[in-house]
Structure formats: structure tokens, C-alpha cells
Design a protein around this nucleic acid. Structure first.
Lengths: 116, 116
DNA sequence: ATTGTATTTAACTATTAAGTTAATTAACTG
DNA sequence: CAGTTAATTAACTTAATAGTTAAATACAAT
């Protein structure tokens, strides 16, 4: 795995267990056991996944008694989002999200007209 | 590498050479040799990177005489962009891009006032 | 002090990845 | 046809990944 930040982030995200862990952290801090609970996987495996996420700066961990609560640190996701910018014109029908939003509004207006 | 599409895409992007190849393809179709030119790497290595990108559906290849021109197929990037949506609220100061855009406009208006 | 719960570390295995060199296929050119 | 250019395949090496089990550490609770 190459050394640059973006590669680390993409690599960390290239695993469904790790993405599920991140998703689980969107609702707030969780302990390792809480994070491990949904998976049919041993604890050491989860510990390793958390290490990958931590080294990619996608999570941070604190200590509370015997627990190591984890929380999301989304900086690297922002970097990906910014990296993505150069490709948006290739997959977005309209130029940007404002454009999308305005089109959505127009459609909604038409529907409102038709439905009222 | 797990089997799901998103994992394949993230994996393919977790390499700076492959990301550079994609970036190079934003300016249009390129042959394998053209893509390989900037890198200090043998051709077979490039062939392998292209295979990874192709299996991730990030590029497609055609045939023209002895050349195999590649072009971008950004569908999987769109999937990542959509996946990202659930995290935007964590790294975007404002709720969405429309919000950003409106704030930008306001700032611009103020600047215009100040500068005229 | 002992026991229990949370988590990590160590040691190991199997698989995949990224690169190399050498050989091969495919098509053009003279 | 012979030679050249474009690209791929094969075989191999080295290193990294994802998981396991078993042992160790850290703190809590009785």
C-alpha cells in the first residue's frame, strides 16, 4: 500500500467490514465490542480493522475505564470528496448540485401543479 | 479483496498510479503506451493496473489496429459519490452544497458592496 | 486477592497484490 | 517475408492482507 494519504484512505474503505464500522459510528461513539457485535468475526480481526481505520485517520479512540470508545474523524473523507471534484462533470448530468437541486424543485413544482 | 462493487472501486483507487491513469483519461482516450509514458514502470505493470481499473468498471477498452485505447467509465465514481452522501454532514460546515453556494453568493455580494 | 470483562498482541496460515524479466501475440511497414 | 511497434501472458519474487487461535494486559467488581 503506497504511502500517500489518499491511498491509505481508499485502501481503508475498500473493505465492507470497515465501511460498516464507519457507518455504525455515524450515530455516535461506540466501544470495540459494540462495533464488533454485528460481525461474525473474532475480536482480534475487529481490532485490526480498527487499526487500519485509525492509521487512515478515519477514526480516533479514547479511553474510558477498560473501554476504548471510537469516533469518526471524517477529514480523509472530505479529501476524497475534493478529489472526486475533477470527475463530477463525467457522472453528473448537470453541472453541479445546485443545478440538480433547482431541477428537482422545478419537477416538484410541476408535480404540485398536477396534483393539486 | 471482497466481492462487492464498492470494495472493488475503492481498491482500484487505492493506488496513486491508477489514480494518475484515471486523471490522464479525463482529457480523452489514450493508448496503453501513452498512459504508461509518465511512469517509471514496465509495460506489464501498467497492463496489470489497467486490468484492475477495467475489472472495477472504471475504464473500458476498445481496439484500433494494434492499439487498445482506454476511456473513462465513471459510473463507479458516481457510486462512491453517493456512498459519501451519508458522511457529508460530518465534514461540510453547512448542510449541503446549495447551502454553501448561497453563502458564497452572500459573501460575494458583500465583497461587491465593499469593493465598488 | 480473585474473578470477570474488554481489548490487544503474538504467532501463524492462506490469499492477494505489485512488481520484475522473458516469451508471446497481433498488427503495421518496408 | 522480415523487422518493428503495441500490448499481453507466463512465471516468479516479495511483501502485505485478512483471518485464525492462544496468550497477555488492563481495569472493575466482588
Amino acid at each position: 500500500m503506497p504511502a500517500d494519504q489518499l491511498s491509505h484512505t481508499f485502501h481503508a474503505l475498500a473493505d465492507p467490514t470497515r465501511r460498516a464500522i464507519l457507518a455504525s459510528l455515524t450515530t455516535g461513539e461506540k466501544t470495540v465490542s459494540q462495533l464488533a457485535e454485528p460481525f461474525e468475526m473474532t475480536m482480534p480481526a475487529i481490532t485490526k480493522h480498527l487499526k487500519v481505520l485509525e492509521k487512515a485517520n478515519l477514526i480516533e479512540r479514547s479511553r474510558e475505564a477498560q473501554y476504548r470508545p471510537c469516533h469518526l474523524t471524517p477529514g480523509p473523507l472530505k479529501n476524497i470528496d475534493e478529489w472526486m471534484e475533477q470527475y463530477r462533470r463525467f457522472f453528473e448530468a448537470s453541472f453541479d448540485r445546485l443545478d440538480d437541486y433547482l431541477k428537482q424543485l422545478q419537477t416538484k413544482d410541476k408535480n404540485d401543479e398536477n396534483n393539486q
